[in-house]
Design a binder for these strands. Structure first.
Lengths: 203, 203
DNA sequence: TCCTTTTGTGAACGGTCGTGCTATTTCTTG
DNA sequence: CAAGAAATAGCACGACCGTTCACAAAAGGA
């Protein structure tokens, strides 16, 4: 009962790395088995189908993401500080290549965005949750009086996420970290323009 | 000699549509042949290899993009007006689903960003060119005195492109056009903040 | 210890993939 | 119209895919 969980975790760990580079479709059971030195049917039997393997991979990646970005930021009190921690944490998560192909969900979403099915639904749900976290943090900051009362939390969250995604995309495609500085600058400019006390934000 | 060009164009037109939805890897020669009612080897022989087909598809998509977005905007004189036309044209191009899976290059870049090879290089070059067009338009506007002289054209271009990409991603993934309004608002806010005469920008 | 359940193996299946090859059709041109 | 070139069809190949199934190893509870 313990042995099963261990190999399952090993498979998923490898699956996330492959998928972030080659896509969830490029994730083949045969290749996974070969690289982990187990039998193809062993991998297959554990998940029942390729789609289930993909769904499990998405779920595992969501856990990694939450641990890397969301949990640390939720440990700081609500307000602009927490909002900034979400942004900065996301940039660190992408830049640190926790997944070798950059943000797992950026790759997965682009791959499945136009293909109906359970995999797409799972990816869309994960991304919607992330948007929700960001937007809620912005709205909290507004209601705490740390952002202008007139500001639109949804708009702000959209723009912050857009800058992060663009930095991820550009840095992976061009193998160049410069975009992270552009994203950071953009995020801070946005926050400073809306913060009632900009001095609490980093330089 | 004419017949050859015609089928080549038909193949590429279909290939672009497939690739924007299923990816350049999902683009299979057999499927392409079946859906176009020609023989597999007929399609293959015309391109020589799958990689050449992919490269030709990228080149064809670049032409479509230039026709849809760049050319119209370059028809208006340099300045903030042209810069805005580039942004607005891009949103229209994505929203209009000229490619059924949204922006071709967004999908292709996410698919190949972490996979070295000629296909990735071609995609990276196309996107770099687009960034260059955007940045040059911003810099022109600045030098014409239509944007604050202190503004950073590269930063502005990065942010405008980020908003567009995010709108494309969100709208395709969630099947919801709302993101285009967010992107448009963000773009206009950015431009208004830097324009010396904001009244020239649309409402 | 024996028995049952869980985990993993190995071989095989039908299918699709990219890619060569050899005809055969279709156009162009003298 | 005939000869030659260009374009397409048809077929076969090896490789890999997801999936199935019968069976062996290992683990756990009685």
């Amino acid at each position: 009962m313990l042995r099963g969980e261990r190999t399952r975790a090993a498979v998923l760990a490898h699956a996330m790395d492959i998928a972030s580079v080659e896509g969830l479709e490029g994730l083949s059971i045969g290749r996974l088995a070969a690289e982990l030195d187990v039998s193809k049917s062993g991998v297959f039997a554990r998940f029942g189908s390729k789609e289930e393997l993909q769904l499990a991979t998405v779920a595992a990646a969501a856990e990694v993401f939450v641990d890397a970005v969301v949990r640390p930021a939720l440990a700081v009190p609500p307000g602009v500080d927490r909002l900034w921690h979400l942004c900065d944490g996301w940039l660190g998560y992408s830049r640190g290549r926790i997944f070798p192909g950059g943000c797992f969900f950026f790759s997965a979403a682009a791959e499945y965005d136009a293909r109906p099915g359970r995999v797409r639904d799972a990816i869309a749900a994960a991304l919607a949750e992330w948007s929700g976290v960001l937007e809620r943090a912005a709205e909290d900051a507004r209601q705490l009086g740390q952002l202008e009362s007139t500001c639109d939390a949804r708009q702000l969250a959209f723009e912050l996420a857009a800058l992060g995604s663009a930095a991820n995309a550009s840095s992976v495609l061009h193998d160049d970290d410069a975009a992270y500085e552009l994203a950071r600058t953009g995020m801070l400019t946005r926050l400073r323009a809306l913060a009632t006390d900009p001095s609490t934000l980093p330089a």
